[in-house]
Amino acid sequence: MNQGPLLFLSVLCAMAASWMGFVLMPQVQLGNQSTRLVKEIGRHYPAERGGIAVKGHDVYRAAGCVSCHTQQVRQSGFIFDIVLTDAGDFTDLVTSLVQQANGDLSDQQAADIVANAPKTILEGVSKQTVDSIAFLFKDSGGKVAANIRPTGPDIDRGWGPRQTVGLDYLFDEPVLMGSQRIGPDLADVGSRLADRNWHLLHLYHPRTVVEKSIMPAYPYLFETREIGDSPSPDALALKGEFAPEEGMEVIPTPEANALVEYLLSLRIFHPVFEAPYIFTQAEPSENIDSEMEPAE
């Protein structure tokens, strides 16, 4: 190693190796990724973000929201719900099999399930149990299906129905996945908190809606102005200590509206091949984390 040229060659080789590993390989693997048809919704996923949400992404980047918020949901595994989809012709046999599959069911409950199929037999079981139960029902005439349910702390918190995968970020530019959770994850915030006004109040002054929040306020995204002839319909409904002075109102700037539009566009409601889950239409305003509930 005591000669310059040898040293140069070795550094060059090491550099080339690291470049191939972490620049070329990912690009070869993911560079050609394109939108994919998702059967459950009959549409291509992901869709490019449109309208003022594009500008909102820019506001998100400029304000450095990524310093405190991630946009990635982790998942530790799957559990399965077993559903009897079709009881078939041999109801007595299937009823006994249902009871065999779930020992906790009484005769009456098992009969109910068979009579009212499709119905869930077992919840939250492992892949092995699914296989053994599928084997049990083989040739019985009854049909069972397994619904997939992703698990993990993030999912239990209601931060998203499934893990995020590379495909979800296809149209983000720049990709702001984040590495810090000083604040909650935002990958699915649009489903969790679908109320536009909540977001505007939260941006203007987080403590108006979340007591003890440590998020900085963004008053510069709002304009405080004198009330004209009549109060603006866009004015924020601020109360108590957060209210502006008498005769003044707080109006969101286009940036604030764009940012909120962007936040609302952050939703995970498509299962994809890499991250399957039972598809149910996302119902906004459910699963609201307790910390997100408006403070009284």
Partner: peptide, 17 residues
């Protein structure tokens, strides 16, 4: 990453690199 950005999560990997 900045001038002629690659698409998708490859950005994160190159950022890590």
């Amino acid at each position: 990453l900045v001038m002629s950005p690659v698409r998708g999560v490859t950005q994160m990997i190159i950022g890590g690199w």
